[in-house]
Design a protein around this nucleic acid. Structure first.
Lengths: 355, 355
DNA sequence: CTGTTAGCGCTTTCAT
DNA sequence: ATGAAAGCGCTAACAG
């Protein structure tokens, strides 16, 4: 493997000149520059990443920190990761994956102290995340995909939940719906202050009130069984509901089952829309669910960009980047059903396939 | 940040002794060992990864190479990655993600020449993969998740498609099915020699023949529309079919739609089983699909283990690791329908929700 | 515009 | 059982 030394000799210049030529750290006469690059080409030379990192104190390696334990449905997370990896590469960085189940600042310290990475991108942060406090304390560059309780001064990117919920509700309102239910995450998750759950709930309440829409909010565990039960309880209690927006995609199969059991039809008898689930998943339902697709790849990209901006010493003017989800229609939303029958249906002769 | 030098001074030993103590490369008297580790503890010392890598010529960094462009099974791919990342960490390695859309050996060379990684794990390899030829040529350590045309001498791990198909077919046969269809990937994909498609097809043909089962094989694009069309064409032509095993999860929504349109019921009128899709996705259907769940995390783990074995100079005795998918029942398979009616159903009064 | 040289923090001969 | 010292391949003062 050729080294810088080899290149220097071949180009008849000193080693440092090669270095400066490569890094553009210092003006080089066009002629020698040519010679150097020619020599590099001929030798197939590539700078050694470790040596460069050691000498310059910049490894050009970033870490993506994501807890493998508390992950959701996957496909979205994968997009985060790929978006981040792609962007890192585009910006001349490497990306290492740190799967820490521990949200411990201790483990993070050990990793950082290895001097491997120039900065970290955090995912799945908690409202009061010790890791963040630690990173600030030691003044280590980082960015966040997600949000904390207090985000002042933090470089973060997140879903614009307000706008996302607004889009969903408006879509339903435009279809004539006036009684809309919101199926939330599980109560424990909400009570623990899980950001997406809290923010969407707030937004839903505010927006429905603003638009004069009757609303209900229900917690629901992320299982088909819970979806089934929750739906039935909801409709029994509030039969006037004609549309449901749900924050957890895993309750849909159960809800669809419950709907079928009643002999109802989507979207004729009830409209469904998923908040924040990927179109891929939404298409696994019948009919495909309308969804607000999270801008996962973009968030991954922004997470890295916000970090690299700091590393490159660029003034990080805007440190907050909120991206709305994109409405993807899928056939599960339609005009509000005629309020004549209550609850209405077309046929009731559908067999119960069991749950 | 404390360095080895600091530790040495604090422990009253030479720098090299600290190094030997850390690496266990040379016997150290118990007493000095204690002193050294105490000093490390007190200083909160961590060896510098880059310096260590540069000096030892082993970075303890691995690369996971996966083409972001190719068809992604989404959630399964994420599990690969996490499995690999977890394992790397457990074995004392870092894992960097290389998202190359180019299957070019050139780009791979550039990356390897940086000296950043000790070895690479390849995903989505092609039957005749230039990257593999290149890696062998320069004798660079690597392992594969997947398979090539010629795998002699390669360290690879893959799904045991033969066993997977066998499990699926046997399950259906045990339920009394004697006429089973296999929904394949798209013809282009098959013709291109895509391993999973080719292997499952071969296995399906062999196994059904072996068991004396009537079989049909159909290609299908990975869309709901294609699933709908393919299903209808299939059943019109071969109405005796009572069970379908499908290689592409994305055609299921369309098939389910077609089934509903006929007023059929799953699994009473027809059994469905998905080959190689994750239970998470399978549960998004109604009823949840029976599936053969890929051992994704294990494959990721094995990919890394096979690589690290080589790096640690351990004799890589077994270089081939085939893992079967795990049968996860979901309610979409049942006893073969009574052959009296043809085609039968329970109710036909189900409204057509449109596609 | 170019060259010389002192490290970066660690591993690893070669001594003792 | 321990130390001294020569690099690993590169960057970045410091000199001209």
């Amino acid at each position: 493997m050729p080294t810088m030394h080899d290149v220097a000799r071949r180009a008849n210049v000193s080693l440092s000149t090669v270095s400066y030529a490569i890094n553009g750290t210092r003006p080089i006469s066009e002629e020698t520059r040519q010679r150097i690059f020619a020599a590099m080409e001929e030798l197939g030379y590539r700078p050694h990443a470790l040596a460069r990192g050691l000498a310059s104190k910049r490894s050009r390696i970033l870490a993506l920190l994501f807890p493998t334990s508390e992950r959701g449905m996957g496909t979205t997370d994968l997009e985060f990761i790929i978006g981040a990896a792609d962007t890192a590469r585009d910006l001349g960085y490497h990306l290492v994956l740190w799967t820490s189940d521990i949200n411990d600042a201790v483990e993070l310290r050990q990793l950082i102290q290895q001097g491997l990475v120039d900065g970290v991108v955090l995912m799945e942060v908690h409202l009061n995340d010790r890791r963040i406090a630690y990173l600030q304390e030691i003044d280590f560059p980082f960015s966040i995909i997600g949000r904390c309780a207090d985000n002042t001064g933090l470089a973060y990117t997140d879903i614009d939940f307000e706008q996302t919920v607004r889009t969903a509700v408006q879509h339903l309102v435009e279809l004539g719906h006036t009684d809309i239910a919101f199926i939330n995450h599980a109560r424990e998750v909400f009570d623990a202050g899980y950001g997406p759950a809290v923010r969407t709930t707030d937004a839903f309440q505010r927006i429905t009130q603003e638009l004069g829409i009757h609303s209900v909010i229900r917690f629901c565990h992320p299982t088909a069984q819970a979806g089934y039960t929750t739906f039935n309880a909801l409709i029994d209690e509030r039969p006037e509901i004609t549309a449901i927006a749900a924050m957890n995609e895993r309750c849909f199969p159960g809800m669809l089952q419950a709907i079928a059991d009643r002999g109802w039809c989507v979207p004729d008898d009830i409209s469904l829309i998923s908040l924040v689930s990927s179109p891929d998943v939404a298409e696994m339902s019948m009919p495909p669910l309308a969804t607000l697709a999270p801008p996962a790849a973009e968030l991954g990209r922004l997470g890295v960009e916000l970090l690299v901006q700091q590393l490159d010493g660029r003034p990080v003017s805007i440190t907050e980047r909120l991206l709305p989800c994109r409405l993807v229609l899928g056939g599960s939303t339609g005009e509000r059903r005629a309020p004549t029958l209550n609850p209405p249906s077309q046929f009731s002769g559908v067999a119960d396939p069991g749950l």
